[in-house]
Design a protein around this nucleic acid. Sequence first.
DNA 1: CCAAAGATCTACT
DNA 2: GTAGATCTTTGGG
Length: 202
Amino acid sequence: MPSRLLTPDFFIDAPDEVARRLLGKLLVRKPDSPDDETTSGRIVEVEAYFGAGDPAAHAYSGKTARNAVLFGPPSRTYVYLIYGMHHCLNISCEPEGTAGCVLLRALEPVTGLATMARRRGLPSDASARLLTSGPGRMCQAMGITRLDHNGIDVTDADSLLTVMEDGYGTPPMDVTPRIGIQKAADRLLRFSIQRNKFVSKG
DNA sequence: CCAAAGATCTACT
DNA sequence: GTAGATCTTTGGG
């Protein structure tokens, strides 16, 4: 089965629904420098964040300069800097005007592992798990930054960053609490592919 | 204006 | 297991 782009419809839904559907899809990052390969990986771990009613979400207290993209149309990247040094990648969902997103937490690397290792500052023979297991690691391996990659439409074929369907199907998943948050820490909004070794924890 | 927290990762004990 | 790095964003005075 050939790879094909997801459509915007895929993201016009509640974050938990979109999160489940994103597991097994392919995140593809085109090269933008001569010595870069295309880097891509299968999405193996995600978390859902709502807007209203979800105290853990960046959109909880309304629209700000940082989270503005979450209130715009679906299928857009929301990239932010955390702890002064790591980036996190989300994709907006819900219709325009309603905030909601899915945080991508881990990938199973598929192509461009040498480029990923170089971006991560690791030797080319480093364990593949160190490349993309965790939201900060994943962004560094894929070369994603807030300054350059916030607000990208991942359903546009011309985008630097896209999400593809490639026939992997819907894998069996684990549903657990979200990681690294203080508020609403009991809600089961983290989804990961069962027994996949690239999941960041658990 | 200033203070504090933060959807993390790495190194070290 | 615990600490430190490092800086943007946000909320309070």
